[in-house]
């Protein structure tokens, strides 16, 4: 019997719920932590970024209007799907990070737990960030949270799965949609994550994942007038300054890169969720 041909996966982008190749037709070589060839990944261009923003904007009204309960359920569903692909992610993390199988397993478990943790926050974040405000007048004064809009995310270079989940989940759980520039060094887990998202009832366009050079794509996202916020967690110091300057033009919310190395296994707290929330305050007259 002749030997079976290998069926190799083409690593593509994730835009609007579909898996297109880069508009530019470019790709780049992805190596393992030991320097061995793993695959060719798509190298996204600024036009892919623009298309991703269009998709994210289109998805925003539906996703932000979905009930918090529904968003939580969908995030939980993502966790379920991730769990089902545990072995695949473990293998990819071993390749990408050079960690042992056991450590990789712990990281995947932590990523699943992180999703479940954020899923639980969907209908609770309003309780800690909203308030009934005492005012000196005949009014009910209520503040509630609203999502910021389309958020560009430069994912951390380290932690290709746990780090990625830890920046995406807090953005979307509150009703934002996002365009993520995945880790340039280790993009393959992000493409597999896209396959998980595509099978998790997450509406197309809520999460868009681009692989390629952050230095090339992030400034276009930072300058884009239809992006409302940018998370620079994975941007280097120099790139972060460029992006923050560009982001000033339309007063984007900017989450600056951390000054110290982040321990992604630690309790994340609510800061990443609250960074991309707006507060709406309503004055409602009492009586007639």
């Amino acid at each position: 019997m002749s030997e079976r041909l290998a069926v190799r996966k083409t690593y593509k982008l994730f835009i609007g719920g579909a898996f297109p190749r880069s508009e530019s037709g470019r790709s780049y070589v992805v190596n393992s932590s030991k320097g061995e060839f793993l695959a060719n990944a798509s190298k996204a261009s600024r036009k892919d970024a623009r298309d991703a923003v269009t998709a994210a904007r289109k998805a925003f009204p539906g996703w932000s209007a979905a009930t918090a309960y529904n968003r939580g359920q969908i995030l939980y569903r993502v966790a379920e799907m991730l769990e089902g692909r545990r072995a695949q992610f473990v293998a990819e993390l071993v390749d990408a990070d050079g960690v042992g199988v056991r450590k990789a397993g712990e990281l995947v478990d932590a990523a699943v737990d992180r999703l479940v943790w954020y899923a639980g926050w969907s209908d609770k974040i309003g309780a800690i960030r909203g308030s009934a405000n005492p005012v000196a007048g005949p009014y009910f004064n209520l503040s509630s949270t609203e999502p910021t809009g389309v958020v560009a995310v430069v994912a951390p270079g380290e932690g290709p799965l746990l780090g990625l989940i830890s920046v995406i989940a807090p953005v979307i759980v509150t009703g934002n949609t996002c365009v993520v520039v995945a880790s340039e060094r280790a993009p393959l887990p992000s493409v597999t994550l896209a396959e998980v998202l595509a099978t998790s009832d997450l509406p197309g366009g809520v999460v868009n994942i681009l692989t390629g050079s952050a230095a090339e794509i992030a400034p276009w996202l930072a300058g884009h007038m239809d992006v409302n916020a940018i998370d620079l967690t994975g941007a280097g110091a120099e790139l972060a300054v460029t992006c923050e300057e560009l982001a000033a033009e339309n007063l984007k919310r900017v989450l600056r890169p951390p000054t110290a190395k982040i321990d992604w296994l630690a309790d994340p707290g609510t800061d990443r969720m609250t960074a991309f929330l707006e507060t709406k305050t309503v004055w409602h007259p009492i009586g007639t």
Binding site: R57, M225, L246
Partner: peptide
Amino acid sequence: SGRYAGPDY
């Protein structure tokens, strides 16, 4: 302007 425009404007 060299930057992508948004419909908000």
